[in-house]
Write a protein that binds this DNA or RNA. Structure first.
Lengths: 206, 206
DNA sequence: CCGCTCCTGTACCGCCGGTACGGTTTTCGG
DNA sequence: CCGAAAACCGTACCGGCGGTACAGGAGCGG
């Protein structure tokens, strides 16, 4: 009914924070049910096992991720007609959004799942792969659009450029966590932005 | 004495592979002692607890990592006098090295530790931070050297550029694992290499 | 009132990290 | 070659955790 969904969401909220902070293995079910105020039986009513919790967590995370990208780059395309300017603006907006997170980026579940555990089943690995492929399609389309209007100074594959967005995001998250410098992630994104601007700058300037 | 070190090394070898594949939490001590052929008592003779295993694992990994960078970029500097050419060559050599790994990069322990667990103590987090700072110093020095000879087309901070190397490596590892495409990591490194070449290209070409 | 969703309570299992501790073999310096 | 330290083995035990089984109950819509 309604109540069930609400409880399930509350479990997922608590679980997501715990998993991003401590890792999946270090997050105990006992701990989750204590914080959500339900019993162990209640937990297993919603999730068959921990693996299904991981799956639900990941799917919800990816959905939310896609929504954020839709919104930011959608807004960027509303503000700028030119595909290059829109993309650069999108990166800027994303960087600002990441800067405004008080404790830095909480971490990426996709990275957590694929870095940390081959303990998960193939289904989760496939969800992860699809998420990365969606990022590639999303940004790849943008780069292809840009390349229809601008000639890059160096021949680079649109898909590899698209992957670079994901790479910088995932790598920036890792680095800013390791360094304990939340600003590193948005900074790295801006460095990448400069590279993209440089790549599509017209050769004849003077 | 001598035998002790050998056994300890064997434990670390087995543990490193397991941790990179399944994550730290999912790697059981029972599993490690079974594969190394020792008993539980033997394990705890070498490591007080799992956290000390993690620490030893991380320190050894970082040492080895530094050695590899020393060798590759040392060789690159032997082959090219110019600091920019040497750096670009180093990236190329590194990319080729990563391409030659049959099953792709096994994963970065620094990323594993900092992504996955706030369950580790502060000591490990500090080791992680120092590793990232060492990368920054290493590549930052190279970029500063380059900037003494070349004027970048865009004003970028040498340390942020240095961090970009780590970002691309860590992000590339995550992405190639998520995509199950080992080639992504070396490819991303080459894309970054193109960006660096572009950044320091003289403006007046004709 | 029935039946379904959404739980609670209790009891239990096996794995795992970790402790304790006594005993044994191996190794190396003197 | 001897003795002592190093490098283990064996066994027993503990508590936490993931997971199972199952009985029961509260609330609510039809």
């Amino acid at each position: 009914m309604r109540k069930g969904e609400e409880t399930r969401t509350r479990i997922l909220d608590v679980a997501e924070a715990a998993v991003l902070a401590k890792g999946f293995g270090a997050t105990s079910i006992d701990e989750l049910i204590a914080e959500t105020g339900i019993t162990k039986s209640g937990f297993f009513y919603h999730f068959r096992d921990k693996n299904e919790l991981a799956k639900a967590l990941l799917e919800r995370y990816i959905e939310n991720d896609e929504r954020i990208y839709d919104e930011i780059f959608g807004r960027a395309h509303d503000l700028a007609d030119d595909p290059l300017q829109a993309f650069l603006l999108g990166l800027k907006l994303l960087s600002e959004l990441l800067s405004d997170l008080p404790n830095g980026h909480p971490g990426c579940l996709v990275a957590t799942m694929c870095t940390q555990e081959r303990a998960f089943d193939r289904e989760i690995q496939e969800i992860n792969r699809q998420a990365a492929l969606m990022w590639r399609r999303r940004f790849g389309a943008m780069f292809r659009d840009i390349m229809r209007h601008y000639r890059p100074r160096e021949a680079l594959d649109a898909d590899q450029l698209a992957d670079m967005v994901s790479t910088v995001l995932e790598g920036g998250i890792v680095l800013s966590k390791a360094l304990k410098e939340p600003k590193s992630l948005p900074d790295q994104l801006l460095v990448f932005r400069t590279f993209v601007r440089l790549l599509f700058q017209p050769i004849a300037q003077a």
